[in-house]
Nucleic acid binder design. Sequence first.
DNA 1: TATTGTTATACTCTATAACTATA
DNA 2: TATAGTTATAGAGTATAACAATA
Lengths: 155, 155
Amino acid sequence: MVRNYVGRSLPRIVSQSTGFLLSWVAGDAKHRFEAALGEAGMTAHQLGVLTALRGGPQMQARLSEQLEVFKPVMVTLINELEAAGWAERRPHPTDRRAVEVHLLPAGRQMLERADRIMQTTTEEMFSSLTPEERAQLHSVLLRLAGPIAPEEPAS
Amino acid sequence: MVRNYVGRSLPRIVSQSTGFLLSWVAGDAKHRFEAALGEAGMTAHQLGVLTALRGGPQMQARLSEQLEVFKPVMVTLINELEAAGWAERRPHPTDRRAVEVHLLPAGRQMLERADRIMQTTTEEMFSSLTPEERAQLHSVLLRLAGPIAPEEPAS
DNA sequence: TATTGTTATACTCTATAACTATA
DNA sequence: TATAGTTATAGAGTATAACAATA
């Protein structure tokens, strides 16, 4: 309970509570995804922003809102994306205060690579389950997760 | 992906990946447990230590190891437990460097209260599942979690 | 007066170092 | 030389404040 239990084997206490098990497995999943993305030189935060840009350029303020990231954090993230050549700031056509963040070709490639990474990692994670078990897990989690937010309108 | 998605409704992207769903549901679970414990004036960290003391007094160093908490953090945690009257430090019978941390009656009561809280919260969380679904979820998560650590020998 | 993007700052958590008193 | 407990310190990560430019 106390911390991350970085060790590779599941503490016995955790194995007895479905809630703790959930946290344990999710922590493991997070670690796997971040490690896999890290090998491609990308953080989960950066992927989040790139994903939000898939549908077209966005103002920084919208990105902050959508991803629920504080504005100063978004500044840093977009600096990183620009440094990597994955996205760039351009002046907003009508609002001179704002910048639009545009996805660059290298960023789109990175997104495709990230898609493959996420898919592979997911496959590894759930390989011990049958397709039926996996489908049932998904539907059960969906029910536990509660209502789904309405679709975001594009820029 | 990026951060905590503090909002109460599930972003659409998350709903499509079993891995993300897992993280989402686990985050929600963590929030529920911590809120419920908080109402009883207890943190999850503190509960972790109290639970470790259930089987008998422990040296601080062992507690740090078992719970994978850094030594300075354990100092703070045990200070908190002493301030709350739930546990106390006593000199180790043979090793004059060490202290033994003992569970006090108020701590044992708190543990029982925490047990009830955890049980109630678990019940709330999984109330939308049938007993069969819940059992299958548990067994599937157990498989995803991997090997279970061997029992800790008592102090 | 409100909003955009930025810089500066504070606060919490996590992690390490350094120290004493023993073993 | 190593270990137990403590204090001090460093570093991320997270959150807020304040500011200039513009709406």
